[in-house]
Nucleic acid binder design. Structure first.
Lengths: 201, 201
DNA sequence: CGGAATCTTGAAAGTGTTCAAATCAAGTGG
DNA sequence: CCACTTGATTTGAACACTTTCAAGATTCCG
């Protein structure tokens, strides 16, 4: 089992080294390994539930997730998906330490690396590579969210779907269409019709 | 005029000290002052134009702005507004050094403090307060964009407007309704009708 | 005082949702 | 391996919401 543990952390090391274009030192690898705990989660398990304060950060080694809210009518709205090398957190809850309005649910049996938020703060001060990774992630997610806002307020249903197809083709392979619809802010019926029209072209 | 310059930088110092809950040292104030240039811009001037690479970061001392894109049909979509103490940048363009898809236009005669991106990077390494401010800003904007996405994909026109009214009441005082409509992803006509209905309640 | 935006209103057209039902696919227990 | 249940997807029809286009009212500003 030791080997499996090593492999899991290795996927995180690789992620950091790619994001920062720098090699991690042995010391950095050691303190990072120590701070992250591995956690297996099964399909439909919740990493975070509405009302809880988000006190941990998760890194997806294997598997997938969705982050969604439930409105008064009981309708779900998917804010984010997660795949390998993506991070799990509710920034609003974890930064302000308030109860979350969201659920984060695993969509497949998954392997995660989990770290507490105080430990994130400490690691950022101890490891330059770790700190740079989080700066880069903030930038990356800012760009992604900008695009998402632009799509949501300025595009038609077809445009949003075709945009998604080219930006995240993986989503279409891994997630059911009703969830894709929710992510795009459409009803499943509308997405079904949009796709039928798109095929004709 | 010296006094006016001092006042402008002072507004930036105050912003940083509030965001970080720490006092800036005299040394930090000095290097920050040196790195930022003051710039007056008149209403309708562009801080950034589509096609240009965003190489500067602006801090609004006084005035207001909007960031918007123009689609193929010539329709404008407002992604962001800016007010006093807000920052001006296109993250996508400035991080990836690619031509921007957006315009950033001043909506009132404004006073800005402007810094080049390499200087931002350098200052973050030299001044802890400056670095912490940008970390905090990243978090703050992440939360705001999350909410925006949630509103755009999950709320009706009325809900979005009432959400805006409570979150950014200042917007309604400072910006014309056709721009508010664009920010919400609505036509001006629809917003006008939404407001009429909202008043009755 | 114009002239140019801005805001409102009405009617027609377009887009997306809801509801209901049928089809299809996957997983479960016998 | 089959029957059954559950979830996912598609289709149709009626409905609701939003846009578009056109016109009138209001406000702002030189």
């Amino acid at each position: 089992m030791q080997e499996a543990i090593f492999l899991m952390h290795d996927s995180l090391f690789k992620h950091i080294e790619i994001r920062t274009s720098e090699k991690l030192t042995d010391y950095e690898k050691e303190i990072i390994s120590d701070a992250f705990a591995k956690k297996r989660m099964r399909k439909r398990q919740f990493f975070l539930q509405e009302g809880d304060v988000c006190k941990h950060l998760g890194f997806i080694v294997k598997g997938s997730s969705r982050m969604f809210s439930v409105d008064e009518k009981g309708h779900e709205h998917i804010i984010h998906f997660g795949l390998e090398s993506w991070w799990l957190t509710d920034p609003e809850s974890s930064i302000q330490l308030i109860p979350s309005r969201y659920f984060i649910e695993m969509l497949e049996d998954s392997e995660l690396l989990v770290i507490s938020l105080p430990d994130v703060y400490e690691l950022r001060n101890k490891s330059r590579g770790f700190d740079l990774t989080f700066r880069a992630l903030d930038k990356f997610s800012t760009i992604a969210m900008h695009k998402r806002i632009h799509a949501a307020i300025g595009m038609t249903a077809e445009e949003r779907f075709s945009d998604l197809s080219s930006t995240y083709p993986e989503f279409l392979k891994r997630f059911p269409m009703n969830m894709i619809a929710s992510y795009l802010g459409l009803s499943p019926e509308t997405l079904s019709r949009v796709r039928k029209n798109a095929i004709r072209k």
